[in-house]
Design a protein around this nucleic acid. Structure first.
Lengths: 334, 334
DNA sequence: GTTTAGCACTCAAACCAAAAGACTGCTAAA
DNA sequence: TTTAGCAGTCTTTTGGTTTGAGTGCTAAAC
């Protein structure tokens, strides 16, 4: 579709614009390696790239900036995925090596690392818990009125919660409950904890009926509590020149405030591996000047991470770093 | 020191400046209730207030803005503590009523509420855990290689952590460990978990020595992990006109990045009840254009909350809301 | 056919001067 | 003690000019 030279020019323009945030002139491209034509030649090429929709001008006599279509081509075909330095590799390795016990901690660290290395705002949602299979449930009496319930799932994830009772609870009650819950719920997915025990709610074993109900209620809260959201590096974004513009800044604040949209995006089954969404590609007024890159773990128990940056984001760097982190997590097991 | 009229004028100026962020002119004050003198009279008064250091000018012919000394007087003597609307009371009550099981959750909700109502950035640190007394320790085996340790303290706080072992762990080992830990550690403050068990690290009961050490190591991590920090509403702050200025914005970002300074402040024993720190009163270059208001729970198990806003912060509103939340928490027990 | 030098043209940004406007401070009268 | 009135100060606004970076096009060179 585009000949090789045009592609190389487009690539050079994107790279330049990503780093300077200023419209790119023909003479600037002249200086790039492998493109030492006269500015007039480049000008002609740029003019054609604009006609086919890959470039835009901010005003008649300005340099060019990439259009969404231009960024798209760049991301799909031209981008180098090795844009990561030794120092960065070292830094990432070190941070991810921290021994963690729970996937949640890993997500937190990964989110933080990604934001530190890329300097963009990073957001993540934890793994979906509803489909996981209950392997074992433990009850721990704390003091005389607090009961901790711990659930271990087949993937090794641990969820726990605490229930406060108005009256004293006794060990033998706990043992009965323990037997009952494990018998009825082991092997069931978390989302199905309700029916198997409903019959006991208003049943003969009155003494424990209230307790059972209270526990189930609390577990439901635990399972359906808002998806846990990790957010890092929002402040860094306010250094971006695009956020000088009041309107763009407002939009960015809106995005962070109504996180739901971002969560929906991260959550969508559409997202697989690494995905790039550029500006208007996402049909959201607030997001029109931003791009989002998402990373979903291979086994979906890991949750999804997303980076929000300006359309002029350093796609190459972000994707390289994401790819590296992905590999690290994949080999490392948890 | 200042006569009544001067105080009322100062108060009017602070109130006006807080809401407009523009230097206040003499004629503006004329319109305020109880101050219907001519602008010339007000001008004379303002001139004297400036001479005594309560007001400042941004340039020779501008209106006046309060100085730190001016704000100080306002906060100490002139401020109304009932600046809170019925709607706000309703909103706060509703949010804080959410049943929580753990102090951490309460802190999170309080921080969030405070930020929602005041529109300022709110930061909080959790309660100090090291001094609390161990009441009981429970061990829960999850699967065959994961051990959860739960500690209940005298104040009803619960801390838990998980340890992954390389080899299978057996119930009878856990029972021994359980007995040992509870015998040696009950009644001791959390910060003293090390010595009582050191003798067992390399001791006769070899089989468990490694386990004991691993558990103690992990508990140390838990106890001395960085003080948990809650942060809410940073984005809202970027709407403030003072953050239009690049330098002030930079300072603000710095504050959020090196949270340590804020934590130190919140953590200092100096902070009691409600405290106000205005601009240069805190000897920190980054904070010179900001004020911080802190709220410390009566029983220090609650941690401390701080609000960071511009010097032109709505002291009256913030303090009113804090006071209300404080009362709510105090009566409510946890 | 492709490349390039050269020049006219465009438009944003920088610059400058003048005018307007919002204040104050001071003086003198009420 | 208060206030009307006015001169003086400094910022903000306005409008016009210049500058300069860039383009597009044409015609010559390769």
């Amino acid at each position: 579709m585009l000949d090789d030279r045009k592609k190389r020019i487009l690539q050079a323009i994107v790279d330049e614009y990503v780093s300077t945030a200023e419209p790119v002139s023909s003479s600037c491209i002249t200086k790039k390696k492998g493109l030492d034509y006269s500015s007039a030649t480049i000008r002609n090429e740029m003019s054609e790239l604009e006609k086919s929709g890959y470039l835009e001008k901010t005003h008649t006599s300005s340099g060019r900036i990439p259009s969404v279509k231009g960024y798209r081509l760049y991301v799909d075909e031209l981008l180098k995925e090795d844009n990561i330095s030794i120092d960065e590799i070292k830094f990432i390795k070190e941070k991810l090596q921290t021994k963690v016990n729970q996937i949640e901690d890993l997500m937190k660290i990964a989110t933080n690392t990604l934001s530190e290395v890329t300097h963009y705002t990073t957001v993540a949602i934890g793994p979906k818990v509803t489909k996981q299979i209950i392997q074992e449930i433990k009850f721990v009496l704390l003091g005389s009125r607090m009961l901790m319930v711990v659930i271990l799932t087949d993937t090794g994830m641990i969820k726990e919660t605490i229930i406060n009772f108005e009256e004293d609870v006794y060990e033998n009650q706990i043992q009965t409950i323990n037997l009952l819950f494990n018998k009825k719920l082991q092997g069931k997915p978390l989302e199905q904890i309700n029916e198997p025990l409903e019959e006991y709610f208003y049943n003969e074993m009155e003494s424990s009926a209230n307790m059972i109900k209270a526990i189930i209620d609390q577990l439901n809260k635990l399972i359906y509590e808002e998806t846990k959201l990790y957010l890092e590096g929002t402040n860094k974004s306010f250094d971006l020149p695009e956020l000088r513009k009041a309107e763009t800044a407002r939009n960015f604040i809106n995005i962070l405030e109504n996180k739901t949209e971002v969560v929906d995006l991260l959550d969508s089954e559409f997202a697989k591996d690494i995905n790039v969404y550029i500006g208007e590609e996402l049909d959201d007024e607030n997001l029109k000047d931003f791009s989002i890159i998402t990373l979903k773990g291979e086994d979906s128990e890991l949750g999804t991470i997303g980076i929000i940056g300006p359309k002029r984001m350093n796609y190459s760097k972000v994707i390289s770093v994401m790819r590296y982190i992905q590999n690290l997590i994949d080999q490392g097991g948890i």
